[in-house]
C-alpha cells in the first residue's frame, strides 16, 4: 500500500535530516516512530505528504510515486492522508466548525470554498465528526477558546473529514499532559482499529510506545537504527531504549518515569 524507498533529505544549509530511509507500511498498522528531537521524525512525516520536498528517494502510494507527483495529483494524494500536529495547527481565530470543514478543502469545488460555502453533506459530516470527538457543543466557539485536549480533537476531526486512508501524527500528545495523552492516543487507536486507517505517529515516551504501537521504527541522526514488532517493543528494556536514544537517554528515561501512568 505504502512504501518509502531510500528517502534522503538535505536542507539548503547542508543539514542532513534523513539518510537513506526505507520502510514499508501495511494497511491498518499503527506505526510509531521514535527518536530524539532533531533525529528527523518531523522531517520524515512531512516528506511523506511533501510539506517538505525530499531530496532523493521514492515514496510509493498505491504504486504512484508521491515525490514525482504533479501539483493536482499531489493534492489528490494529500487528501487521502490526514495529518495532526503537536501544536494542533488550528486557525485560532476561525470557529471550530470552519476548522473541521477545512478538512474537506481537497474535495470541494475551489470557487465555492473561497466563499466559505460547503455542501450540506459536508457540514453534516463535520458535525458528526465533532460529535464523535465529544465536542459537538463547542462547534461555534473560536478555536483558541478550547483547551489543548479539545483542540487536538478538533485537529483529529479535521483529519477525519478527509476520509483518509492514513493519518500522519507529528508528536500529537507532546503538548498535552499524560492523562490527556492516553485519551488522545486511545482515540487514534480506536480510529485505527474501527476504520482500518493506518497511523504513522511519532512519539517520545517509551510507555506510550509500548502501549499503542503495532510496529516501531527508531531514528537517530536521520538513520533508521531500530525496527521492532509489537512483541519486541513490549519486551524492550530501558537499556535497549538507551541504545536508540544515545547518550542523552538518562534525561529521556527520567521524563519517561514522570510521564508514566
Amino acid at each position: 500500500m505504502f512504501e518509502v524507498k531510500n528517502l534522503t533529505k538535505i536542507y539548503d544549509d547542508g543539514t542532513v535530516a534523513l539518510r537513506d530511509i526505507s520502510f514499508e507500511v501495511n494497511p491498518g498498522e499503527f506505526i510509531v516512530i521514535i527518536g530524539l528531537s532533531g533525529s528527523g521524525k518531523s522531517t520524515l512525516l512531512r516528506c511523506i505528504n511533501r510539506l517538505i520536498e525530499p531530496t532523493e528517494g521514492q515514496i510509493l502510494w498505491d504504486g504512484t510515486d508521491i515525490t514525482a507527483a504533479e501539483a493536482s495529483e499531489l493534492r489528490r494524494i494529500r487528501r487521502q492522508i490526514g495529518m495532526i500536529f503537536q501544536q494542533f495547527n488550528l486557525v485560532k481565530r476561525s470557529n471550530v466548525l470552519t476548522n473541521v470543514l477545512a478538512g474537506r478543502l481537497g474535495y470541494v469545488k475551489p470557487g465555492l470554498s473561497l466563499l466559505h460555502r460547503f455542501p450540506a453533506r459536508d457540514r453534516e459530516m463535520a458535525m458528526q465528526a465533532l460529535e464523535r470527538a465529544g465536542i459537538a457543543d463547542q462547534a461555534h466557539k473560536r478555536a483558541d477558546e478550547l483547551s489543548g485536549g479539545q483542540q487536538q480533537r478538533v485537529g483529529i476531526a479535521r483529519a477525519l473529514m478527509q476520509e483518509p486512508r492514513m493519518i500522519l501524527a507529528d508528536e500529537p500528545v507532546a503538548s498535552l499532559d499524560p492523562v490527556l495523552a492516553h485519551t488522545i492516543l486511545g482515540y487514534l487507536e480506536k480510529i485505527n482499529q474501527e476504520e482500518k486507517i493506518t497511523i504513522l505517529c511519532s512519539l517520545h515516551y517509551l510507555d506510550l510506545v509500548q502501549r499503542y504501537a503495532t510496529r516501531v521504527i527508531g531514528l537517530r541522526e536521520g538513520r533508521i537504527v531500530y525496527r521492532g514488532t509489537q512483541e519486541e517493543i513490549r519486551r524492550m528494556t530501558d537499556e535497549e531504549f538507551k541504545e536508540i536514544y544515545g547518550e542523552e537517554a538518562e534525561r529521556v528515561s527520567a521524563g519517561l518515569k514522570e510521564g508514566g501512568t
Partner: peptide
C-alpha cells in the same frame, strides 16, 4: 502551522491563503 495543516488536506494555494493566511 495552520498553513501546513491546510496544505496537508490537499487544498490549493488559493484555498490555503483563504483558510490559513486571511483569518490570521
Amino acid at each position: 502551522g495552520p498553513i501546513e495543516a491546510i496544505q496537508a488536506t490537499g487544498a490549493t494555494q488559493l484555498q490555503t491563503i483563504m483558510y490559513a493566511v486571511v483569518p490570521q
